[in-house]
């Protein structure tokens, strides 16, 4: 009996815990998370564009060397 009671209380506490685990729910609810998404996307886009310009410059140099 004691064991069953313990098991029950354990299961209940598990169920409660999963609801109480604090995630950034508020940040999602008020939409502030999109600010973070926008900032990180901007940084990433900037870096990708930077890579593309380097890539293009190398292509130009390769062409020039091939001409010689």
């Amino acid at each position: 009996m004691k064991k069953i009671a313990f098991l029950l209380s354990f299961l209940i506490s598990l169920g409660l815990q999963s609801q109480e685990i604090a995630m950034a729910d508020e940040m999602r609810a008020n939409g502030k998370i999109y600010v973070v998404v926008a900032v990180l996307t901007a940084i990433l886009l900037g870096l990708i564009i930077y890579l593309i310009t380097i890539d293009r410059k190398l292509s130009r140099m390769e062409k020039e060397i091939d001409k010689k």
Partner: peptide
């Protein structure tokens, strides 16, 4: 894929786990 990773990585639901959280 990189842009998808950042956007979906921040927005898609993840399991709620103690210690780890977000």
């Amino acid at each position: 894929l990189l842009i998808y990773t950042v956007i979906a990585g921040l927005l898609i639901d993840v399991p709620r786990q103690v210690i780890l959280y977000e």
